[in-house]
Design a protein around this nucleic acid. Structure first.
Lengths: 189, 189
DNA sequence: CCATTTGCCTAAAGCCTTTAGGGAAAGGCA
DNA sequence: TGCCTTTCCCTAAAGGCTTTAGGCAAATGG
């Protein structure tokens, strides 16, 4: 019985691939074991349980999203930064729907606090440096941006905008235009 | 063996209650049978399978959401309508998280087209009558509203805004103020 | 009152998770 | 090189969930 060379990290990476192919929900210990060519029980030396596996995939996805966001933001400001950040977010979700779903997996507070999600959130806030918003309005705006990005991508992925004109890409572009205009003229409380 | 008087509709209603208590994901044929006090196999005379059960719960939730939205919209226009509609949406999600999750259950296109989701979408569009938007910008705005409502509520439910100031209610109010301002000054393409 | 339909049951197969315990491969050290 | 320990993957088994098949008893209705 040749060794398969498994580690928790490798399982998370393969689990992420699997998630993109069959959906995050369907990533089971069984399916993962089949994919790597070992018996199910063998996984349990590396991961504690299914929840642990999903958490690791979630952390991996958050890491990737934060890395891409950082790349996109480098050297940009204002509307440029907003659009680059938003596009990278949406493109990631469309290219890796399973990983994107994983990134929305509920993490316990300690894990979430130590995840790359924090880095990603800080970058969302950094975008607002190009606009003139003080606290607490800045936080409200951060939350609005998060809501729009997640909401749009999630509805789009669920097929909510398909099979009807106009094209969803069009709506995305106009949504970002509108957000930029809104942030520049943010209403007083 | 006294008869329990089950029907597909009753199972959907009880399933919806169960969803709010234990989460939509955990609504299994097993759990439902335990709840109504019959053996699991007995459910299969009324529902085709688990997917069918979840679909019925989803349709129920969409129906309820559309009914409440219609009530909220009656006799209102402009920002009033926007706020009433949005509040009803958010309040429903917070009072019935399991049903809200059910409402996001992916329906096949035919089922979705016959669901109350269509009515709900039409109402979202009706809100825009209070603002001055022509096609295709109106559709972009409908999609933006849907994204913000779903995105905000979903992040809030997942705990994304908790344990940090300001209060999420505050952000909701300001988000609606911002949306109203945006719709009134919608940028030209 | 009997026949049919309907509703819930038992039984069983198949897949999933998780734990327990065993044997073989890898790696360190004499 | 040869042994010893650790590591890794395996078999076995228990328990939960889904779904189908077939049976008996309660409701319905002529």
């Amino acid at each position: 019985m040749a060794r398969a060379g498994l580690t928790a990290d490798r399982l998370a990476r393969i689990g992420a691939e699997l998630a993109d192919e069959i959906g995050f929900e369907q990533v089971t210990a069984s399916a993962l074991a089949r994919r790597v060519g070992v018996k199910v029980a063998s996984l349990y030396s590396h991961i504690a349980n299914t929840h642990d596996l999903k958490t690791r995939i979630a952390l991996l996805a958050l890491e990737e999203m934060a890395d891409r966001a950082a790349d996109a933001l480098a050297g940009r400001a204002g509307k440029d930064a907003l659009i680059a950040f938003a596009d990278v977010y949406r493109d990631y979700a469309r290219a890796h729907p399973g990983r994107y779903a994983a990134a929305r997996f509920p993490l316990d507070p300690r894990t979430a606090a130590a995840s790359a999600g924090v880095r990603h959130a800080r970058m969302t806030r950094a975008i607002l440096r190009g606009y003139d918003l003080d606290e607490p309005e800045q936080t409200h705006a951060v939350r609005l941006l998060g809501s729009v990005f997640h909401g749009f991508v999630s509805l789009e992925l669920a097929g909510g905008f398909s099979h009807s004109a106009p094209d969803s890409q069009e709506s995305w572009t106009r949504t970002l235009d509108a957000l930029d205009a809104l942030l520049r003229t943010w209403p007083a409380p």
